[in-house]
Design a binder for these strands. Sequence first.
DNA 1: ACTACTTGCACAATCGATTGTGCAAATTAC
DNA 2: GTAATTTGCACAATCGATTGTGCAAGTAGT
Lengths: 338, 338
Amino acid sequence: MNSPVITIKELARLLDLSPTTVSRVLSGNAKKYRISDATEKLVKEAAKQHQYQPNQIARNLRLKETNTIGLVIPDISNPFFANLARIIEIELRKLGKLILLTDTHDSSDLECETFKFLFGRKVDGILVAPVGLRCEHLQRFSHIPMVMIDRYFSELSVPYVSTDNYAGAYVATEYLINKNHSRIACIQGLVNTISNKERVRGFRKAIKDYGISSEDIEICGRDFSIENGYQTTQKLLKQASSLTAIFTLGNQIAIGAMRAIKENGLKIPEDISIISFDDQAYFDLTCPPLTTIRQPIDLIGLEAVRILFNLMDGRQPESKLLPAKLIERSSVKDCNSV
Amino acid sequence: MNSPVITIKELARLLDLSPTTVSRVLSGNAKKYRISDATEKLVKEAAKQHQYQPNQIARNLRLKETNTIGLVIPDISNPFFANLARIIEIELRKLGKLILLTDTHDSSDLECETFKFLFGRKVDGILVAPVGLRCEHLQRFSHIPMVMIDRYFSELSVPYVSTDNYAGAYVATEYLINKNHSRIACIQGLVNTISNKERVRGFRKAIKDYGISSEDIEICGRDFSIENGYQTTQKLLKQASSLTAIFTLGNQIAIGAMRAIKENGLKIPEDISIISFDDQAYFDLTCPPLTTIRQPIDLIGLEAVRILFNLMDGRQPESKLLPAKLIERSSVKDCNSV
DNA sequence: ACTACTTGCACAATCGATTGTGCAAATTAC
DNA sequence: GTAATTTGCACAATCGATTGTGCAAGTAGT
């Protein structure tokens, strides 16, 4: 029986031709190498009949091109990254590339190991949302075309695409302040990641600009998980301060915070207000609908892919910070009207 | 300068050894081939110093093993699949495999193309949540180790791991009936997919077992999207029937349904009850908290990987249907107590 | 009929790692 | 001192596709 995989060599033997000729026909270079029309037709028919599929591994080795892009993400179960992955997958597929997906679970060590893997696989490029704590490995592999998404290191020459986290956080904080909140807690994500730092910076700047005492605010939390949102909020609420609003710096944190508030028998926004960075599809259905800062996820994905391909074509790296947008719902109480 | 990539051949030249010897040392076969301790040490040090990373493409070609698993998913932005992807990624990484991720957007054509791609890439195995409409391509490539997840075709000899959708839907329906609902709509997902069909079957069976007139129920909808949940619910509500409960067959459908209900100014569960297949992390925070049927996502992922590896080891295929669990919250009104 | 092209295809090397086998040199045995 | 082993490593083929080059056979020109 025919094995389910047929190679060019076998095809050639069947047709009594050389592998060279078969290869040339199948890669569309028949004319270029003066293969006769008759032979061309013969080869094509045989290929179809035997369902010939080129062995990409062999092509890759020879052509030094794998048509594969590494996608390195801290947590694919976070809807922000899942949505990002989706748009990126769509774009890359249009361009004939496949994705090697890796989830680093916010571990720099895993990320570093991942880079070695991807390098060994000879990916044509890498799209990475770095954990954000270290970057030697990014540096080390920066000879391969790479774009950072969401999180980045401005000190590296690697381009990035992200949200303008600073401005977004500023707007969110300003919004709270305009609603006359003054005792505000900010629950942050992974400390030291640029997106977190920028959001915190935006928060602080607004606080300062509006002359709010630094004693009336609190910045706490440690990562972007639901767990962190929950535990940090529990702690905040136990402090029995006169906290009036919480600004969560990620959608998962918001979930945890809401859960804790609910368990404490408090009402949003009557007892405590909440605003979150990073909108999600279901945030209009939570109790109450959540006011958020929406990041332009699709645009981030699109731009990242575009820039990556520019890089692969040898063009200049180019970074982008895209604007976030306030989505006003009803999780923030207007303390002016009291 | 040294190029950033060093090959075995170059390493060999530097050390004045043959590539053979270098290869043998680096793949840990020094003893087996009687390489002297001195040489072994020399090679290892040079490899470390030059940061040698084996070219996996070349190894793959020679060894016919890519350490890559194809993951084929209908929609990675659906949290159900994102969570599944995450647990699978974790398990596969433990086993030294990387994931080629593809999103088929619920298109059988794309799925078919995807299979060709994966075959060409010589993946060691495939984990697929098939679109579910056609399966010739699954058949055609069934010589490569493959496990279907979530959705499956029982007529194929390809093993699968999924939830016991029939039983889950039966329990959900029974729950509604016990709460004395009798005018129930069921908003389904992708018609003809096995998970949908099984859920509908469970629904129908419960309806029949409890003697509810088929005129009091309605089965509508077309796919697993938010959009479908929204539009179908809008239609249902416009019919001004005396509908008392909706059973949505997927988490995204539930979101759409809730949105439509809300926009129509109706209250859940006072005006209309809702129960959904497929629990999500945030469903305790929606307005109201949603009663759902939870699928054992982690277990599905774990089992799928386990079975796939058994297959790759040449052991027998084996399929599993895992139990779902009712998570009672407060989106279903108890009509008995009225 | 003899040279000059053109046509149609095959040879062989290559990509980087792996592996069965072979063969000197070193060691041991007697 | 010679034969028998053992030690230590290299040769060369292989995986499947690609490509620069070469070379017959066919056609055209005069």
